[in-house]
Design a binder for these strands. Structure first.
Length: 506
RNA sequence: GGCGCAUUCGUCUAGCGGCCUAGGACGCAUCCCUCUCAAGGAUGAGAUCACGGGUUCGAAUCCCGUAUGCGCUACCA
């Protein structure tokens, strides 16, 4: 519980449905969500589907899945409704039209009959003269005969905002310091496109006002158009919400520009598939551009809700650092996740690798104990869930499937003859060990540990090396005793015997 | 090109005029632990606080300029 008396904020995440959400956008959504929760307010999801050309089927589900996976829920939205529904812009067209007409009536907007071809020509001419590009505002003074002609030619007009030609506009922002812009540098932006759909500039203002949004939290990409938005609010006589322009996320060190999918995973779903935990991704993302103090690195969602503060968001863009994400994820896996939780979350990855069946992924049943034991062997070493199968696949495969160079069995030992003796001693020992001792990792270790000195080895490492390779087929493997227990005594002895045969056959 | 924003170790950051000979974290190096690999523990290298001017008794902290980075410059968001 927080004792601060912030007034309840209404924030929103308003993505356009153009595919799988990008971690940059999602981080902004996280900020908005946390601020709403911190202040005891509301967080809404609104779909901004005004660009009919960029719609991607299924996007709304992708967006909701990404948010839900991260543990972010919303109080109002397209699926659950709310007091200001609908929450999909394409279903709110009359509202935008009404506001646009009001602006025209009040002299703050006008119809524009210019064709795309003409706009392009104007821009090219301006650029050739090294002037700032942009619309020449021709239709502000277009004559009636010209209008009639355009209409007769079948031109569907757009509606443009009539930017004041003089003066300055000031944008106040909670992250970036106040910025001031000469009105003359701002374009007469299109408010309603010729297809009748509004642009972002109009639609988000109409909706934020209608939905009583108190904090417009978005990325700094919007900062240059914020003065335009301020002017539209002024023309409408509406109260401005607080502006919060969060920094963008940059590519990893060495790569220029903002985080791009050219060389990096950018979708939340990709990180899920790569084996990152939602709580780790969230923790990492929130710390990219925000900090609580000079030392806290790990936060639960509840702690974030308690401690998040917009005022502590950095104004500077941060680079996406995969090493730090890996470290964060590893910490969650190694130290925060319970063994049961770890095993449960590993199921899809084991299934993907073909180590268990799809049916077992859904319901492992009796096999769960084995899976949990196997996964438990690598819980403290794995950085991502997707690494698990590659670390423990030998425990799922039959002994005969292990393939490894015979020489690996020897390691630092003096030669095959000596290693055969080691394997025989271990087999002999394991055959006699009482079951209770076999099942007890420490007892099993202590028993085996008595073997190396009688064999004349200079250290215990020489004793443990051959069985490691024999059981795993690798020189790097999970804990030896752990593997023995998971495999069971019979399978263990079988693998040791196979290794012995391999050496003898050499 | 124009407009805007930003600028503390390679990276993420603490710092809001004296506590800073700048603290923490990732990464890196060395050592310890040790049945391999990890994890863990310890230590270390690494930032003249982008640069140049001011303001002030005093500046990483305030102001100005330059440089650099980032963003925008669509009937996309």
């Amino acid at each position: 519980m927080t004792t601060d008396n912030f007034s309840p904020a209404r924030t929103r995440f308003a993505p356009s449905p153009t595919g799988n959400p990008h971690v940059g956008n999602i981080r902004t959504a996280i900020f908005a969500f946390l601020w709403a929760r911190r202040t005891g307010g509301h967080f809404l999801l609104r779909i901004e589907d005004t660009d009919r050309n960029r719609l991607v089927e299924g996007s709304i589900e992708y967006i909701k899945d990404s948010l839900r996976w991260l543990g972010i829920d919303w109080d109002e939205g397209p699926d659950i409704g709310g007091p200001y529904e609908p929450y999909i812009q394409s279903e709110r067209l009359p509202l935008y039209k009404e506001v646009a007409e009001q602006l025209i009536k009040d002299g703050h907007a006008y119809y524009c009959y210019c064709t795309p071809a003409r706009l392009e020509a104007v821009n090219k001419a301006k650029q050739a003269q090294k002037l700032p590009s942009g619309y020449d505002r021709r239709c502000r003074t277009i004559s009636q005969p010209e209008i009639d002609e355009a209409l007769a030619a079948g031109i569907k007009p757009t509606v443009r905002f009539k930017v004041p030609l003089e003066g300055k506009t000031v944008v106040h922002d909670l992250i970036v310091k106040t910025s001031t812009v000469e009105n003359s540098t701002i374009q007469d932006a299109v408010l309603i496109k010729s297809d009748g759909f509004p642009t972002y500039h109009l639609a988000h203002i109409v909706d934020d006002h209608a939905m009583k949004i108190t904090h417009v939290i978005r990325t700094q990409e919007w900062l240059p158009s914020a003065p335009l938005h301020v002017m539209i609010y002024q023309a409408l006589g509406w109260k401005m919400p607080e502006m919060v322009h969060a920094p963008v996320i940059l590519n990893p060190p060495g790569q220029k520009g903002k985080l791009s999918k050219r060389d990096n995973a950018v979708a939340v779903s990709q990180y899920r598939e790569l084996g990152y935990l939602p709580e780790a991704l969230l923790n990492f993302l929130v710390l990219l551009g925000w900090s609580y103090d000079d030392k806290t690195e790990f936060f639960t969602l509840a702690e974030l809700i308690e401690k998040f503060d917009i005022a502590r968001i950095q104004p500077t863009p941060a680079r996406f650092n995969l090493d730090k994400l890996d470290w964060t994820n590893a910490h969650y896996i190694n130290h925060i996740l319970s063994p049961e939780d770890f095993a449960r979350r590993s199921l899809p990855f084991l299934g993907e690798a073909g180590l268990i069946t799809p049916a077992e992924v859904a319901e492992p049943g009796e096999k769960l104990a084995f899976i949990a034991a196997a996964c438990g062997l690598v819980k403290d070493k794995v950085k991502t869930l997707s690494e698990i199968p590659g670390e423990i696949d030998m425990l799922f495969k039959p002994a005969e499937a292990l393939e490894y160079p015979t020489n690996d069995l020897i390691g630092k030992n003096t030669g095959p003859v000596e290693v055969v003796k080691i394997l025989e001693a271990i087999i002999d020992h394991l055959e006699k060990v009482p079951e209770a001792q076999y099942q007890d990792r420490d007892a099993l270790y202590q028993g085996l540990d008595t073997l190396w000195q009688p064999l004349g080895l200079v250290n215990r490492g020489l004793l443990f090396w051959p069985p490691r390779v024999a059981l795993s087929g690798r020189t790097k493997s999970p804990d030896l005793m752990g593997m023995m227990i998971v495999l069971g005594r019979a399978e263990t002895i079988k693998r040791l015997e196979l290794a012995r045969q391999k050496l003898l056959a050499q």
